[in-house]
Computed example of a mutant assay.
Amino acid sequence: MRIRELLDELGLFLLVDQDAGDSALDREVRAVLTTDLADPGRFLAGGELVLTGLAWWREDGDAESFVRILDRAGVTVLAAGEAEHGLVPDDLVHACRRHGLPLVAVKPDISFSSITEHVLRRLQPRHVGGLAAVVERHRRLLTGQGGPEAVLELLQHSLGLDAHVLSPTGRQIAGAHPPLRARTAVALAGRYLAARRSGEAAPHGVTIGDRHYSLVPVRGTTDASTPSAATEEADELGDWLLVVAADTSDRPAADGELLGRSNWPSTRDPRTSGRRWR
């Protein structure tokens, strides 16, 4: 997918490189990442459309470091949402011009999720090399010390999905912000437990209001020191659950594998069981 197609098909407004000629608009988009990290460098492999809500930007001067990181990583285009500040700050526009990074504005009525889904549909089927890169990022994150947040950022980067990890009682362990409403989280946890007890195969689909969610079991490694009775109780409750704010039933098999095989810190590890990750 090229930048010009992104503009034509999604109605986005080009702020930087509008006078650079056809070469800039013909740059290829090979992946999509949504982030509000001030330094998203570890999740960039080059060729991305980066979507940001600008929560990291507070004053003039903040944009230079962010844009430099994107430029060095080989990002194709930056899309900045106007909802946070009412417009795209001039500081970001000037930084993108200095580094030659194409910049587009996203109006408040255009959701990042709709952009992500559109781009991912255009990029399917994924190339073997791209999937290999996802697997390698997965391996690196899971051998590090990132915890649940790192795995969720991987899922968002690789699949374009907002996700939350909930306890069986509906308490949010980690995930996208804003967190799920308490009533919604409890309802999802209840649906998950009911599906497990009935032997229903995951992912478990559920619709609340006008939103569809897919529920996937999260399995942590069992601590050998955990008493067997406590282990049986945790198994009955189902450990944590991964809540994906989308219908994953029609996703490619590789996506389902990445969702189902994500490894997590032990849900019964005394060092993590009481920690609030967000």
Rank of each mutant, 00 (worst) to 15 (best):
A185W: 05
L180E: 03
A234T: 07
G220N: 04
I173D: 00
I173M: 05
A185V: 03
A230R: 13
S249H: 14
R196L: 15
D223N: 13
A202I: 03
V244C: 05
D255G: 00
P265L: 11
G256L: 15
E236V: 11
A234M: 10
A254E: 14
L258M: 15
A234K: 07
G256T: 01
A189R: 01
P265E: 00
A246H: 11
G256V: 07
P203T: 09
R197C: 08
E232P: 01
L188G: 05
R219Y: 07
R183Y: 00
S214K: 06
E232C: 06
T226H: 03
G260I: 03
A229Y: 04
V218N: 05
A194T: 15
G209L: 09
P227Q: 07
L215Y: 05
L166T: 07
H164S: 09
T207Q: 13
S214L: 04
T222L: 14
T226E: 11
V218E: 02
S225V: 07
P252C: 12
A163P: 08
T222W: 10
Y192N: 01
P252G: 10
D255M: 08
T272G: 04
A182P: 00
W240Q: 00
G220A: 09
D247W: 02
A189L: 04
S266E: 06
A187L: 13
A194Y: 09
A253R: 14
S214M: 01
A194V: 11
R191V: 11
P168M: 07
A174Y: 03
A182C: 06
